[in-house]
Simulated scan of single mutants.
Amino acid sequence: MDKVIRWGILGTGQIARALAFALQEVAGAKLVAVASRGSAGADKFGREFGVGRCHASYQALADDPDVDVIYIATPHAMHAENTLMCLNGGKHVLCEKAFAMNRREAAEMVDLARHKQLFLMEAMWSRFLPAIGEVRRIIDSGEIGKVAQIQSDFGFTAPEVGPLHRLLNPALGGGALLDIGIYPLSLSAFFLGPVAAVQAVAEMGPTGVDLQTAFSLLHRDGGVSSCVCSIRAQSPSDMTIAGPLGHIRIHNRFFQAQTLSVETLDGNARTVEFPHIGSGYAYEVVEVMRCLRAGLIESPLMPHAETLALMGVLDTIRAQIGLAYGADQVRP
């Protein structure tokens, strides 16, 4: 049996809990440590998930000698600082998306991981779902011809959150773009290839972050994508991938893909179900562990170069819509 891989989770919020449940679903994964900014949060999380070591600081987790890989589950604005700390502690890292606040931060993270020969991956969990793998297989088979366009939307409403909530607070990387716009952007690039150009418009909110953003992508190898993200509209969250011979539709919350349909010009149509394990986060855990056991420092499905390229696209979109963060100021 392969060696058990010991996980730590940095942060104790909702996404941290989702990853903790996912670790229970993967053979060979063991959650051994958790860290919060104080003992109360860490201890509560530890009791819920049976975690042996509950650290009252993030640094203590980074320094824990009995942890192999750390999942960064803090808000966007803390990703770079937390990742660099863990890498300097000799830990492999799975960092929640959006990977960083900007490309400059992302490059610092990747450079350090490469220098230390440690694994680092953006937690774009949707890429590892079975249904997404099937979409790639269908595209590669030529069944719908060379993909020419992708349309996708991701929208939800959060009417009760205040200006200090992470969704609206610029100090925490608030706004629709970094929180959920990365999903249609990342999957569009996954299916159509690198982005050559982008045009964006947005509705900005009173705190200075985007409430909803629409952006169109021109892909380097041909094809266009149309993407919308919103935190003030409950959208279907579908994705349609079309070529000259037909189209694929990922239904209802494409980022959690479980149902897809294929229709072709010759009249053939089918719907396929891909129920996934739990919430679906287990598949990225499996990929991290596969890479660690193979001695890789990046995943071929979510490589460093693509993470950096997509962070650059996000920077361009933000410049076009006037969305700036404190992290954009170059440090002396």
Rank of each mutant, 00 (worst) to 15 (best):
Gln151Tyr: 01
Ile139Lys: 08
Asn252Tyr: 06
Leu218Glu: 15
Val313Ile: 12
Cys291Lys: 02
Met311Leu: 13
Ala202Asp: 11
Ala176Ser: 15
Ala22Pro: 07
Gly8Asn: 10
Arg53Gln: 08
Gly322Ser: 11
Leu87Arg: 11
Asp140Pro: 01
Asp66Ala: 12
Ala197Asn: 07
Asn82Gln: 14
Leu10Thr: 00
Leu164Met: 12
Tyr281Asp: 08
Phe119His: 04
Arg290Trp: 11
Gly142Asn: 12
Ala42Gln: 05
Ala294Lys: 14
Val26Asn: 03
Pro184His: 01
Gly8Phe: 02
Phe215Arg: 04
Cys291Leu: 09
Leu31Cys: 04
Ile144Leu: 04
Gln234Pro: 00
Gly295Val: 07
Gly173Tyr: 00
Val161Thr: 13
Ser237Leu: 06
Met204Ile: 14
Phe190Leu: 14
Leu10Cys: 07
Gly173Met: 05
Thr207Gln: 07
Trp125Val: 10
Gly173Asp: 09
Gly223Tyr: 02
Phe21Leu: 13
Ile231His: 04
Ala113Gly: 02
Glu108Ser: 01
Met109Cys: 08
Ala309Ile: 09
Ile139Ser: 02
Asp221Asn: 15
Val34Phe: 03
Lys91Glu: 11
Gln59Leu: 13
Gly38Ile: 03
Ile297Trp: 13
Asn88Thr: 13
Ala305Ile: 09
Asn88Tyr: 02
Tyr183Glu: 10
Asp238Pro: 01
Gln320His: 02
Gly162Ala: 01
Ala98Trp: 03
Gly155Pro: 06
Gly38Glu: 15
Gly243Val: 13
Trp125Leu: 09
Leu192Val: 03
Cys229Met: 11
Ala29Phe: 08
Gly246Glu: 12
Ser261Asn: 02
Gly38Trp: 14
Pro163Leu: 01
Arg103Ser: 05
His247Gln: 15
Asn82Val: 01
Ser126Val: 07
Asp238Lys: 11
Phe191Arg: 13
Gly162Ile: 05
Arg47Thr: 08
Arg104Cys: 04
Asp266Asn: 13
Ala131Ile: 06
Ala16Leu: 03
Ala202Tyr: 05
Leu192Ser: 00
Val198Ile: 14
Asp66Trp: 11
Ala33Glu: 13
Glu96Asp: 11
Ser261Met: 06
Phe119Trp: 13
Glu306Cys: 02
Ala73Pro: 06
Ser230Trp: 05
Glu105Pro: 01
His219Phe: 03
Gly326Met: 12
Leu217Thr: 08
Leu211Cys: 05
Val195Glu: 01
